[in-house]
Design a protein around this nucleic acid. Structure first.
Lengths: 367, 367
DNA sequence: CGAGTTGTGTGCAACGTTCTACACAAGGAT
DNA sequence: ATCCTTGTGTAGAACGTTGCACACAACTCG
């Protein structure tokens, strides 16, 4: 942000000081008949406080409804705030991670605040910097797209846990699903059902270089390797992990002369789009075509959908991240890279592959 | 939070000062060969700055990668931060509102930070207070459950916009969907299709008293009134607006001796649960039973679901909230209560009511 | 009884901004 | 020349915390 952007509004904020002034540590000190330093000591549970003084001070705090001013604290080095940057709220996985973080932080003095960075590295940097400007004591970054060098530089100065990004790093901890393994589970599941032409839908890698990759690349790599181990030819379509992206990719795949018998959406949301495409084109799922996803988002569990998918517990991921971050804030420097094991959930959108000749369109439309 | 909770961790944070010190306004001043006051002036676009000085200062800012310290600014009265409290990330409506807020704030110097308050008033207060502690310049509260008196007291000292809460208030602006009207639209739609026994699923009101109610109560009131105007008898089941809550309520409704011909979930997510119940119990939707929702969440648009619902644009709601908040921060005190018009979206889960005798169970289960 | 030791409380200088009050220079009008 | 403006820059006191350095009292020990 150049200086000018601040100015536009700067002059408008003409200080409408809240009528009832907020109690400060001074007020508490006066009420309790002690010095501000003494109150600070009580607040910090520092050494050198008699039981009677503690009681008097706590009474005063209670009575005045005193709450510490985070900004002032931040100027002295810590804000008791954990910053969480996520890339999108609409995907259901990230909110689950946030839930896990909140739950874990609940019994600590730290508060989580979030910013939404969006799908582009630029916006994500903005979101992260906004948190750093607010002097957060630690950072959780969910699926960040930023370059490895930027990340290393950032994490050299602020304790950080990175979620859903492979490759690890020297300065930060990470919590990541074993996407390679998850993709393998799914490919093996389909192969066991007799599928030979399995298309995989992937998402742009964002220019990250291996091994510092996000889920999409890891899942794609895992898919390719698993296909080869099964003696099958990999077939990847790059699209966007959105309902529409999945739809378009599926239309393309199903328009080919030799059609796939299974579509493996790299994310549930893309699989849902593929599902819509299949229905519109008159294919029955799973009789004519299997469609599977990854993430086990909430929608996938609903009766009408019942999507075969891979589960990675968002809640566990979040709770683990928070725990690691607290450790790191407390002084640990040796990096920890935690891997969450994925779990295959076979449901009703995958079934045995149709005999090759049977892969045909129905003439009547479904439902 | 009592003082003790801070102490647990306090001593652990033993100041691992980031190696490379962050550039301050002093550093910039030195680099540019001017006083700190001068730099501050440039930053604020205040009067009394020559073009040459501005240029020199901006160069120095650029070169040092200087970013203002929000905490220090907050101590002087403003933090350029907008606090957003939302109650849950999992429901798709609230994230959409956040998107709208972010979009509107993008061209302002303000940054949005979020906290997640959860479904209970207690947690929401915590979330709001955490934001106030961080000296936000303004607050957006999404569907807050807190008492009206608490809300009035809070908003007396900090500019606030409340989303999705009816009744308005003197100290704050609000943006709210016309839930009464939306419920009427839906009831009329069903009545026009010949439905006479329409069950409505509602969510606990949280002890709020009219007119200061959240969406659930307004929708329920709108439903009751619309039913009566159509000469029909209202039939409300209180449950939770979740997939499971909708499921259980639907099982109850369908277990009665005289079954409803339509279920109006107060929220899409509850309607989805009802949909699952109907399918499991062997009812065809919409042939045997119409099921409709409210919110037009993303999932409802997906082919397999295609739920009849009422749309309230979350994005518009968010953008409007942010705009109102900026106005309020800029000095407006007269409250504005903005009402968003709902829109009926008939899709494939509603159809003409079956003849009374035809409301029977199929013996074969679907799919 | 003086020298330590321990326990309990205070004084004060930061931390990074903002903004009022002021200083100084250059020019314009009398 | 003197007095006003006007334009441009700086000094310095806040803002609310923290935590080091100290002071003072009451013991303990030789």
């Amino acid at each position: 942000m150049s200086a000018t952007i601040y100015s536009t509004f700067g002059r408008l904020l003409t200080m409408r000081r809240g009528s009832a002034r907020r109690a400060t540590i001074q007020d508490v000190a006066q009420a309790a008949g002690v010095s501000p330093s003494a109150v600070s000591k009580v607040l910090r549970a520092a050494y050198g406080v008699s039981p009677e003084m503690r009681a008097r001070v706590n009474d005063a705090i209670e009575q005045l409804g005193y709450r510490p001013h985070t900004g002032a604290r931040a100027m002295r080095g810590r804000s008791f705030t954990i910053g969480v940057m996520l890339t999108e709220l609409s995907s259901p996985f990230q909110p689950e991670v946030v839930d896990g973080i909140s739950a874990e932080l609940d019994s600590s003095p730290f508060q989580a605040i979030l910013t939404v960075g969006g799908a582009l590295a630029e916006g994500q940097k903005r979101g992260i910097e906004a948190l750093v400007d607010r002097q957060v004591d630690g950072l959780v970054l969910i699926a960040p797209f930023v370059s490895q060098s930027w990340l290393e530089k950032l994490t050299a100065s602020v304790p950080t846990v990175v979620v859903a990004r492979h490759g690890g790093g020297d300065n930060y901890d990470s919590v990541v699903d074993d996407d390679y393994e998850g993709a393998r589970l799914m490919v093996d599941h389909l192969a066991a059902l007799g599928h030979r032409r399995i298309v995989h839908l992937t998402h742009p890698s964002g220019g990250l270089k291996r091994p510092f990759v996000l889920s999409q690349t890891a899942r794609c790599d895992g898919y390719v390797k698993a296909m080869e181990r099964n003696g099958l030819e990999p077939d990847v379509i790059e699209t966007h992990w959105s309902e529409d992206g999945g739809y378009r990719a599926a239309v393309e795949a199903l328009g080919r002369s030799t059609r796939p018998t299974a579509i493996f959406g790299g994310a549930d949301i893309a699989a849902l789009g593929a599902l819509r495409a299949a229905e519109e084109l008159g294919y029955r799922v799973p009789e004519d075509l299997s469609i599977v996803g990854y993430d086990n988002i909430y929608v996938s569990t609903i009766g009408r959908i019942s999507l075969t998918t891979v589960d990675q517990s968002g809640h566990l991921t979040g709770a683990t991240s928070a725990r690691l971050l607290l450790e790191r804030i407390a002084g640990r420097t040796r990096p920890v890279h935690y891997v969450v094991a994925p779990r295959l959930l076979p449901r009703s959108t995958s079934a045995a592959a149709a005999a090759d000749t049977a892969t045909r369109r129905r003439s009547t439309s479904p439902r």
